[in-house]
């Protein structure tokens, strides 16, 4: 986007002499209150835990060890692989992937439909998709919980039309969490794909059609490759927050649907009270996200060429 509007003009430098003064506040605020804390968190993940929260300033690998190995109650048994935390991370990846796929399946056709409307109605459709994005996520998740609970309106409706005899037990299942993540981040998928489709030149499709390409072939081999950057951006915007989500698994799920977010929260706010372990889990989550973002940056760079 930025490259498009800037190209063709020389880079303007009307404020170049004071550039550093203009940038310093943002550097300082984000540097001191986010970059330094993240580095400190890395340090904390290598410290010894203090019971009831906090740390003792003594180097230790216990947090990462606890993540991977089970050494028994007193810590002197031969180490076995600890599957509990690996399972939680694997579940988070599966859930985030599932939410991304669902969002793509619903979000792409929606974005396409909106992008092909006449300019006036397009704004209305777009506005309708944008509103939920601005509504408080907690309220949206609570609303979802209200809707799908055992004797909630969804089950009333399903039993009312005779689809089921007994209420569908959705709450506390992985399905509910999946539904919650999908619902939470659906607008994040529609908006970037829409932005890419809006700039798509339908002359490409018409040319293919003149050469007798079937419609779905045009979609698959011409339109989708052109708008791919938008699709990838949408997938990342859904996948990344889903991976570290807290509200959906906490409100819609239960003990068996634990995700990374809940695991981390429990170390600081809950009963576990193990700060180094929470810091280590956060570092692992952050590394996973950085890998995804690096993959994205590389894909973007490739597309620019």
């Amino acid at each position: 986007m930025a490259a498009g509007t800037g190209s063709g003009r020389t880079i303007s430098s009307t404020f170049a002499p004071v550039r550093n003064y203009l940038l310093a506040p943002s550097w300082l605020v984000i540097g001191i209150f986010l970059l330094v804390p993240v580095l400190l968190m890395l340090v904390y993940s290598f410290l010894t835990k203090e019971f009831r929260g906090g740390v003792i300033w003594e180097f230790s690998l216990a947090a990462y060890d606890q993540f991977l190995f089970d050494r028994g109650l007193f810590g002197d048994d031969p180490p076995k692989i600890e599957w509990a935390y690996i399972t939680i991370f694997a579940r988070s990846i599966v859930q985030a992937t599932g939410a991304t796929i669902l969002c793509l399946l619903i979000g792409f056709p929606t974005a396409y439909y909106i992008a092909t409307r006449p300019t006036k109605t397009r704004a209305v459709w777009l506005f309708l998709v944008t509103i939920p994005y601005w509504v408080n996520l907690l309220i949206r998740t609570v609303s979802m919980k209200f809707l799908i609970r055992d004797n909630g309106p969804l089950n009333d409706a399903l039993m009312g039309i005779g689809l089921f005899d007994s209420p569908l037990q959705l709450i506390n299942t992985n399905t509910a969490v999946q539904l919650g993540l999908f619902y939470s981040y659906l607008p994040f998928m529609v908006l970037p794909i829409y932005a890419a489709l809006e700039r798509y030149n339908f002359a490409f499709s018409e040319a293919a059609s003149d050469l007798y390409a079937p419609k779905w072939t045009i979609l698959r081999w011409i339109l989708i490759p052109v708008v791919k950057p938008g699709i990838i951006a949408g997938c990342i915007l859904v996948f990344v927050p889903s991976l570290g989500a807290f509200l959906a698994p906490d409100l819609l799920g239960g003990a068996k649907t634990f995700m990374i977010g809940s695991l981390i929260e429990e170390q600081f706010k809950g009963n576990a009270g193990n700060w180094p372990f929470g810091a280590a889990a956060s570092m692992i989550l952050l590394s996973m996200v950085l890998v995804v973002l690096m993959f994205y940056a590389r894909a973007q760079a490739r597309d620019q060429v």
Binding site: L34, L40, M41, P241, G261, F268, A279, S282, L285, L286
Partner: peptide
């Protein structure tokens, strides 16, 4: 770019 929960942890620790 940093997941919200990670920002939360880092800020609390800081």
């Amino acid at each position: 770019m940093v997941p919200e929960i990670v920002t939360a942890v880092a800020t609390l620790i800081f």
